[in-house]
């Protein structure tokens, strides 16, 4: 699984979201974890600090962001897997775009419901006057 640049990642992620919209069921899975594989910046663990490589990296480590369209073994051919690496200094910019893409893609979530609040407000206004 080759890693994509951020631009490719976001366009393909948007594609996954769009295909969900068309199908009206299914899932999108997004994962983030620290990229520790093949990193040389971690100090080697020793007897005094056996978790040195896990807990105290000498430098900030990049993040690995993955996305799939939730297809399992049964549907391997249809599975789409994306992965990208975010360097520590790119985090803010990446998450800003990430939020945009997610917000745009997750259109089936409940929109903000203002009707109830209005009704409550009316009740509040009306209630005390009656009492």
């Amino acid at each position: 699984m080759s890693r994509l640049t951020h631009d490719e990642f976001f366009t393909k992620l948007a594609d996954i979201f769009n295909s969900r919209k068309a199908k009206a069921h299914g899932a999108v899975l997004l994962t983030q974890k620290r990229l520790t594989f093949d990193q040389t910046t971690t100090p080697p663990p020793d007897s005094t600090d056996p978790l040195a490589d896990l807990l105290h990296p000498t430098q900030p480590l990049p993040l690995l962001i993955r996305a799939t369209n939730g297809k399992g073994k049964a549907d391997r051919a249809a599975k789409v897997k994306l992965a990208t690496v975010v360097q520590p200094d790119e985090l803010a910019g990446f998450y800003a775009r990430y939020a945009e893409v997610c917000k745009a893609g997750m259109a089936a979530l409940k929109p903000r419901d203002r009707t109830k609040r209005k009704a409550k407000a009316k009740k509040r206004k009306g209630g005390p006057v009656l009492a």
Partner: peptide
């Protein structure tokens, strides 16, 4: 630790 976000319809 990893964080998974699952959006499903």
């Amino acid at each position: 630790t990893r964080i998974t976000t699952r959006y499903h319809l």
